[in-house]
Nucleic acid binder design. Structure first.
Lengths: 246, 246
DNA sequence: TCATCAATGTTCGATACCGTACAGCCTTGA
DNA sequence: TCAAGGCTGTACGGTATCGAACATTGATGA
């Protein structure tokens, strides 16, 4: 393992994106000059529904959502992506245009952006990248399948708890910016429903919140309120994104 | 185009599975001796949750479900697979064991079963198979993402109508075996809820049903009752599984 | 031809969530 | 320092769906 010299535009002590961090050093070195740092600001749209995908994004922190937009304008989250993943799954499969809209929910410092052509080329060349992307796709699929079941079986409160835990894990802090409006959109429920749920959780001292900020104050207990889907998906991610033996 | 002589174990006038049908003739010829015909009987389990996946299945007709099983035993459908696809998506990604349970919902005459090792080997060799599988994965992902959104936004009646239409398309007939119990499981609702929904649909002459048989009698109108997800997914499948230019 | 059982129908109160509206409260910035 | 706007709280009737029984019907096979 070589020592990195922190530098503007470089990885510092290594990329904080977990997928990039799993790459063998020489593959990472080849990828780096192809990527640019992109700040992640609140509500920033990374891929617009129906528009061509030019870049995929490896977040270093923050949380992004992949959403589906219905014809009546309602938007609902179908997948959460943080520093454990990459935004632009459809493009990885060879899709030209985005299906739904992908946007930043919880702002982060930045993400690494990679042009889709460069990505495809590197995917051909490097076995490490291919293996890591494959693993992420597996984990991603498990997550989406679990969410499909979750949405049809579990109550809003359980799903809300799950979402808060997932977000906490991804931002790496107990506290993060989050409005009820946003949560309602994610969960596909009305905002007043979220108000009631959060009040209930705050009453039991599982969370604190006010004016666009939210904090998980009792994770273990919140996990008990959440449905099993949280643990199921987390286990899967840990298993698939564990350090590789290449 | 050569003329096929129908024979035991052969494709007859060509495979009825749409993915196999898209394969270039010589690739199909190479694949055929590796596959076996497997009858699809009602409630037959193709992949057991947590068990190793040995074979993937290309249904010629009938409808299979990929499900997720919760710890309380409740099972819910997360994806529908008919002759437009293949059962065993996770294995295609390199997974060893099934995540949920895959089983036959509407019986069909048979499916083509292919050993997972043979499949992997062929995937390396043949560009046609790789391209077709890639396309199916794209369509599959769109379907699952749409279902995730659908389950969190749309009412049981809309989703029920959607499911009936999808099933009709896959079996290729307006009438097929289907119990309320089964429908309830698919949709993640109670059986009495399904009773009410079906009565309502039958009253409007959109369907007929009795004792384990169901028939769509007015497709266009039923599509109006269904949510937009039916059309969205269908469009995507038609686009991606159109004849290829290899 | 009858017994059996799968499939369907029905009931009841309970509850989660909706749709819509409006009121109050912080924070920000002009 | 005040206005504006984003965020949160609350209210209300209405509907969908739940959970758990029990009743009824039709197909099947002994």
């Amino acid at each position: 393992m070589t020592t990195f010299v922190p530098s503007e535009g470089g990885f510092g002590t290594g990329p904080r994106n977990r997928l990039l961090a799993l790459l063998p050093a020489q593959e990472l070195a080849r990828l780096q000059p192809l990527m640019t740092r992109v700040p992640l600001t609140r509500k920033q749209v990374l891929h617009k529904a129906g528009a061509p995908i030019h870049q995929i994004y490896f977040p270093n922190d923050g949380v992004c959502s992949m959403t589906t937009v219905m014809s009546d304008g309602r938007m609902v989250e179908v997948a959460t992506i943080g520093n454990e993943g990459v935004v632009g799954i459809s493009a990885i499969f060879g899709r030209e245009t985005a299906n739904g809209e992908s946007l930043v929910q919880v702002p982060g410092t930045d993400a690494w952006a990679l042009g889709i052509a460069d990505f495809r080329f590197e995917l051909e060349q490097s076995t490490g990248l291919a293996m890591i992307i494959n693993r992420y796709l597996q984990a991603f699929l498990v997550m989406v399948l679990q969410s499909t079941a979750c949405n049809s079986l579990h109550a809003a409160e359980e799903r809300c708890a799950r979402w808060l835990l997932m977000t906490r894990d991804r931002v790496g802090r107990d506290e993060f910016p989050m409005t009820q409006e946003l949560l309602a959109m994610m969960l596909g429920v009305r905002r007043p429903t979220v108000t009631l749920i959060l009040q209930k959780l705050a009453q039991r001292d599982l969370i604190r919140y006010s004016r666009g900020r939210l904090a998980v104050t009792n994770g273990p207990e919140l996990e008990r309120v959440s449905c099993e889907c949280y643990a199921a998906v987390q286990t899967e991610f840990d298993r698939l994104l564990a350090p590789l033996h290449i």
